[in-house]
Amino acid sequence: MNVPAPEYRYHTLVVKVENRSGVLARVASLFARRAFNIESLAVAPTDDERFSRITVVVDLESAPLDQIVKQLNKLVNVVEIRELHPGHAVERELMLVTVTAEPNRRDEIVEHLDRAGGKVLSVGTDHMMLSLVGPPGRVDDFENLMRQFGIVELQRTGRVALASLDDVAD
C-alpha cells in the first residue's frame, strides 16, 4: 500500500459502493464511530446503476490512512476503494455564491470571476449570483476574494475527483 507523503494533511478516497438505501449512512456512521474526521464528502450514482461513488476527503490527523481504508473496506456494501494521492488526481469543486454587488463594483467582481474562470448566473439590483467550477484551491481563493464585497449566501459541493490519466492505466 502506498503511503502519502507526511506533509499532506488531507487525502482523497474514491469509494465505490453498492447503490442501496442506507449505504451513505453506513459510511458516515463508520467515520463517526471510529473518530475519523471528514473534510468533505460528495456522493452520486456512477455510469453503472448498481453502484454509487463517494468522494471523501479525510483528515489524516484524526487517523492513519491505512486504518481508514481498512475499516471502510470492512463495510459489506463497499466494493472498491481508490486512493487518490495529492498531485495525482484531478479534483474539482462547484461553488455557487451570491455576493453584494452595487453597480459601481460589478466590473471589479466580473474581472475576478473571469480570471478564475467562473460564470455570472444572474444579476439583481444589488446582488450577483456567480458559479465557479475549479480545483478546490482556486475555489478557496475566489471565495476569499469575494469576502470584501460581502457574501450573502454560499454553497460548495465538496470535491469530486478522478485519477489523473497517467495513473488510470493499471
Binding site: P64, D66, Q67, K70, Q71, N73, K74
Partner: peptide, 8 residues
C-alpha cells in the same frame, strides 16, 4: 483474518 486489526 481481519486486515484492519493489523496495525490498528
Amino acid at each position: 483474518i481481519d486486515p484492519a486489526e493489523l496495525g490498528k
